[in-house]
């Protein structure tokens, strides 16, 4: 880790100005659970940090109007246990509470969590001479054009959806998957003012430029997340299958929210995690459910539809089957929930 300068602004405007004053190596830092971690691995090499967590008023959770609005600095643990979120939008609450550990959820903010970087082992484990371990693997995210060691390598954890010849790294988050299912919008502030961004537009596919993971400008800062209130929220779940029961990244996960009358599905929102290069909206699975009476078989068929375009590698083929079954289970769990 190289020496850093550290600034602690108290307003968004000050933060943007501080970012500009620190020059090219400036980065915003919130909880630090991704950025500081990657600095210790010598992957992120900022020369200046703008700590946004001392900005006042950015941690507000507002569920009073037609929308849910989460200030970017609201802690993951706090949004997870907000009474309205817990009771009316279990998909959001569960996505947060199944992520990481309580310690990290107390640190990480719901805004900066959207910018969590991949856990691909060839990306993370290596390069740094000291704390980064002994390895040094080709990775197009780390060094554009250096190649992808995961393709043809140990790829059990890699993505099967949205992959390219340059990268198969999984988008690691849980919270972004739930937000994609719920069509959240992101409030972004930058030197030129504020803008709203549908969350689906935050994450580009890797294509030939896997090092570009987010569509934000470096100077831009996430200030809030907005979700239109909807009836599907109450009949929802975030189902996450991992290599252990807790404190692990998803092998496959599914955010599912349904509107139903009787057994009939009127609306479906389905997104996938752990299997794709970005939070993955499963339109084909949704389409298969809408207008039909839900059965176990239909749920399984919808799960399979979600993976129709999957491109497995050497040893992650099981994710296609596991992912389909995870979606199917999530659909049935969500359906069993009754709106209040």
């Amino acid at each position: 880790m190289q020496p850093i300068r550290y600034i602690r602004p108290s307003t968004v405007r000050e933060a943007i100005a501080a970012h500009a004053s620190l020059g090219d190596g400036a980065r915003y830092i919130a909880g630090g659970t991704t950025l500081y971690d990657l600095m210790k691995l010598n992957i992120e090499r900022p020369t200046g940090l703008v700590d946004v967590t001392f900005i006042e008023g950015l941690e507000t959770i507002d569920t009073s109007g037609d929308t849910l609005r989460f200030g970017a600095n609201a802690r993951m643990a706090d949004v997870a246990t907000d009474p309205i979120v817990q009771s009316q939008y279990p998909v959001l609450s569960e996505a947060l509470s199944k992520a990481a550990s309580q310690q990290l959820r107390n640190m990480a903010t719901v805004g900066a969590n959207l910018l969590q970087r991949t856990r691909c082992m060839y990306f993370r484990n290596g390069y740094g001479g000291a704390s980064g371990g002994a390895a040094d693997y080709p990775c197009n995210k780390r060094i554009p054009g250096s190649g992808c060691a995961a393709i043809g390598g140990l790829d059990r954890g890699q993505a099967v959806l949205g992959v390219s010849d340059a990268c198969t790294a999984v988008s690691p988050g849980d919270w972004p998957v739930a937000l994609v299912a719920m069509d959240a919008r992101i409030e972004v502030a930058g030197p030129g003012g504020e803008r709203m961004l549908p969350i689906s537009e935050l994450y580009p596919l890797p294509g030939e430029t896997p090092h570009i993971e987010f569509t934000l400008e470096p100077s831009e800062i996430i200030v809030g997340i907005v979700i239109g209130k909807n009836a599907a929220g109450a009949r929802s779940t975030y189902h996450k299958i991992r290599d252990r029961e807790s404190f692990a990244f998803a092998l496959a996960s599914a955010a599912v929210a349904l509107e139903m009358s009787g057994d009939r599905v009127n609306a479906a929102r389905i997104a996938l995690g752990g299997v794709a290069t970005r939070p993955w909206r499963a339109d084909a699975a949704e389409a298969m459910l809408i207008g039909s009476d839900l059965t176990d078989d239909l749920a399984m068929a919808a799960g399979r539809a979600a993976f129709a375009d999957a491109v497995p590698g050497r040893s992650n083929g099981f994710k296609v089957e596991l992912g389909a079954r995870t979606v199917a289970d999530a659909i049935m769990i969500a359906a069993a929930r009754r709106p209040l």
Binding site: M121, N125, A135, G153, R244, S246, A248
Partner: peptide, 24 residues
């Protein structure tokens, strides 16, 4: 996990080398 092309150990941390946690 060992990638025979490189040697060394790929999953060399507590996130990737998965040991039992309390919930297990």
């Amino acid at each position: 996990e060992i990638d025979p092309r490189f040697g060394g150990y790929l999953n060399c941390d507590f996130a990737d080398y998965v040991v039992a946690v309390n919930a297990d």
